[in-house]
């Protein structure tokens, strides 16, 4: 097929195909790179499809930049090809998703894995809190959209903001945007909570740790967001049918 031929010509290897983007591994000017290519969805009206694809590519790049500037680790962006809806970005070295990390830990020390995950939960909370305090909404917070990257022992990346030799990296910002309202931040947390609990059952205690450290990372104003979160949780239970 034409698309595969193009990828081969570009020396890219397909790593993963999500619902709306293909993730390739390749190089950019000799550097290891990840290429995220959004593709057309045949079920969508063409105008809507084009609009969403462009919007989400832009939103992703914007959100990555905003996060970096406030000290949240994200991949560097090397090139944005708006013709083919591709983002060429840094291939974050030696990393696994937080989802895989939690699953691995669960397998290897099932009894104690919740307490072993505490430092990670603290870091996640603090990072999301920091992000929200600057009115940056991720839009799709899940444990698959967070990476843990092993830091190099020396060089400019050594030391700094770390978690036991790992750095927390946020990715997949296609649904991201900027908003100051507690409602949007509450929804962002709600999405994370649901994703967390449905993917990693019996980790309610961990999510509480995330929220505790969210407040610390956010500072003043966090209480409003937590209250909103509570309200949003109740909405599902309160929904009444209107004729």
């Amino acid at each position: 097929m034409a698309a595969e031929g193009a990828a081969e010509r570009d020396q890219m290897v397909l790593l993963k195909q999500g619902a709306e983007a293909k993730i390739y591994s390749g190089t950019f000017m000799g550097r290891p790179a990840i290429i995220k290519e959004r593709f057309s969805k045949a079920y969508r009206h063409p105008d809507l499809d084009k609009s969403l694809t462009v919007q989400r590519t832009k939103a992703e790049v914007r959100s990555i930049m905003r996060c970096r500037m406030i000290g949240i680790c994200t991949p560097a962006v090397y090139f944005v090809d708006m013709e083919r809806h591709r983002i060429y970005m840094e291939h974050v070295a030696a990393s696994i998703t937080v989802r895989e990390y939690i699953a691995d830990l669960e397998r290897s020390c099932s009894a104690n894995h919740v307490s072993a995950l505490r430092p990670l939960a603290e870091k996640i909370g603090a990072t999301v809190g920091l992000m929200h305090s600057h009115n940056v909404i991720h839009g799709d917070l899940t444990t698959s959209n967070m990476l843990l990257s092993r830091l190099p022992k020396d060089g400019p990346d050594a030391g700094g903001d770390t978690l036991d030799g790992y750095r927390l990296v946020l990715i997949d910002f296609g649904l991201g945007y900027k908003e100051g309202l507690a409602e949007d931040k509450g929804v962002d947390l709600y999405v994370l909570e649901r994703a967390f609990l449905s993917t990693h059952p019996n980790t309610e205690a961990l999510f509480s740790v995330i929220l505790e450290h969210y407040k610390l990372g956010y500072g003043k104003g966090a209480a409003d967001v937590i209250n909103k979160l509570e309200e949003i949780r109740m909405r599902g239970r309160k929904r009444t049918m209107v004729g």
Binding site: R68, M69, G71, I72, C73, P156
Partner: peptide, 25 residues
């Protein structure tokens, strides 16, 4: 480029990211 960013990125990465995304931010 401020110190906050340099804690999580090299200066080079900070620079090229800006070069790439200036149309959007």
């Amino acid at each position: 480029v401020q110190e906050a960013e340099l804690r999580v990125s090299t200066l080079l990465d900070a620079i090229v990211s800006r070069m790439t995304s200036k149309e959007f931010v």
